[in-house]
């Protein structure tokens, strides 16, 4: 009886019975339900084992071996004592360069995307005319910057010879605001390193907005879940809008910050336009399967490290702000 009260504990007999039909116990309703549940997720289990676990193991093997595809028979492996990893770090001239570049870009982009989507969500949550339309437009990039479209946009250096042309025209007549501001500030000698980053961000604002569709929606949903009575109470107590933002809105949204950070990092790392991804794809097309596998594992490890670090920092920050 006591056992039945804790829904997450299973005896070995029930556990076996849920996965293997002809063994174990399935007489109790709980056990039968468990079996139904397993049946429901069975497609996932099969798929995960066949198309995720097996390839993962093979991919680790690939990364440790010299791989040659034998037409009609699969592939053959020969151990080459971490040559692929050594290749990635010491022989491949571009890989480490790309990796460092992309990581740096990722950090800046993630921060910018989070700030941008946060601000936009706060704005879009207010009541004004045309709100639905504005929301619809801000969500459009989710569709328009996916897959092949994102790649094409970034590879066409003159994405829009038009914009390049207009920029030129603006330069000629001296009304390129960001450039002139930048030169002004650098002449006056204010810490140029940080300003460079900020100006890079401003120039990349199109990419940032294009990358923040889902994040805006997630923040918006969090905002609409905050009860308005909180703000009313704060207002009655003489809280200014600024204080209300930092004392109510920000803490209430901070759990979603973690979700959005992880989503942004993954999104950035998996983009086709990513130079590391392109590099790995090129290797694969050149039949350097071992090297490609090794490099994608290194890349994945880096991504995972970033996710780990950022979620550690954020969860620390969230818990401290709650205390």
């Amino acid at each position: 009886m006591a056992k039945n009260l804790s829904p997450d504990r299973w005896s070995l007999k029930e556990g076996v019975g849920a996965f293997i039909p002809w063994m174990g116990s399935y007489k109790t309703m709980r056990a039968r339900n468990a079996r139904t549940g397993v049946l429901f997720i069975l497609p996932f289990i099969i798929g995960f084992c066949l198309f995720m676990v097996v390839p993962l193991i093979e991919s680790i093997q690939f990364s440790l071996n010299d791989v040659t595809l034998v037409p009609g028979e699969g592939y053959s492996l020969s151990w080459n004592s971490f040559y692929n990893y050594r290749y990635a770090f010491t022989i491949d001239a571009t890989f480490t360069q790309y990796l460092i570049d992309e990581s740096g870009k990722m950090v800046i982009n993630t921060i910018a995307t989070l700030v941008m989507s946060f601000v936009l969500a706060v704005i879009l949550n207010q009541n004004f005319k045309g709100r639905t339309l504005a929301r619809a437009i801000f969500f459009l990039p989710v569709i328009l910057s996916s897959g092949v479209l994102a790649g094409i946009e970034s590879q066409s250096q003159t994405f829009n010879m038009l914009s390049a042309m207009s920029e030129e025209a603006a330069n000629a007549s001296g009304i390129n605001i960001s450039a002139s501001l930048q030169s002004l500030l650098s002449i006056s000698g204010v810490g140029s390193g940080i300003f460079d980053i900020i100006f890079d961000m401003i120039d990349a604002i199109y990419d940032i907005v294009m990358a923040s569709g889902i994040q805006i929606i997630v923040f918006l949903s969090g905002l609409s879940a905050i009860s308005p009575s909180l703000y009313e109470a704060a207002d009655v107590e003489g809280c200014t809008a600024w204080e209300a933002f930092w004392k109510i809105t920000f803490p209430m949204l901070s759990p979603l910050l973690l979700v959005n950070t992880i989503y942004t990092i993954i999104d950035f790392f998996m983009k086709n336009s990513n130079t590391v991804m392109e590099h790995i794809n090129t290797l694969q097309n050149n039949s350097q399967y071992g090297q490609a596998a090794a490099q994608s594992w290194i890349y994945f490890a880096v991504a995972l490290a970033f996710i780990g670090i950022s979620s550690f920092i954020i969860s620390k920050g969230v818990s401290s702000s709650e205390n």
Partner: peptide
């Protein structure tokens, strides 16, 4: 439904979101 190893399998779902398909594409 609740069934044995549910948390483990759900962990696999999350892992699937995180693992870039490029890692396994060669295999």
């Amino acid at each position: 439904y609740s069934f044995p190893l549910k948390k483990f399998w759900f962990g696999c779902v999350v892992a699937m979101i995180i693992i870039p398909p490029q890692t396994i594409s060669t295999a």
